[in-house]
Design a protein around this nucleic acid. Sequence first.
DNA 1: CCCCAGATTGTCT
DNA 2: GACAATCTGGGGA
Length: 199
Amino acid sequence: MHDLTHSEILPRTFYLQDAETIAQQLLGKLLVRRLENEILIGKIVETEAYLSTGDPAAHSYRGMTRRTQVLFGPPGFSYIYSIHRYHCLNVVVEQENSPGCVLVRAVEPIADIELMRRYRQIQDVRQLTNGPGKLCQAFALSKQLNACDVTHLDSVLTIRESGEKVEKKIVRTTRIGISRAREMPLRFYLENNPFVSKQ
DNA sequence: CCCCAGATTGTCT
DNA sequence: GACAATCTGGGGA
């Protein structure tokens, strides 16, 4: 099993800043999914920010609904929704009633890659987690894991500090797949990382 | 209840 | 690059 001894869980205070800031700070952090007898780990390499105000592309833009309830709650919780045949994973940021969030668009597979292959029904490592729907499939994430506290030690889904401190350059572009607010440059990824969804 | 858009992906041209 | 697959949430009647 992968050694997580030096990977501390990010505290709730980490998520108290705005989505644009946290989207960049989450790059390089570890997404850790605990299963019955296995553990899945990926390094976050691509994110998008969805702002709490003035962002027509954000699900929270037109107010609270049953689906978006968790966005209006405290930070450090997962927001997982379904889109077509897939799911997307977000992390809620900012204080209560400020519904900002960060979409995790891609991770670099760390472990257990064989299990990810089984969940994805595909062999190519580069295709396992290089997209929001793909990584949810590889990590067995569905709406059952919506509103999961990713700052809690016992959670089945957590985000942790990575041991390595090698910081790569961050690239900023416009967001992918949206029809509104296309011009807002709120997508971030680690430069030259082969597991980014699109260069 | 009906309608339809959608923070995607895989496949085909 | 285009398009279909597939289904849920949200809005309107």
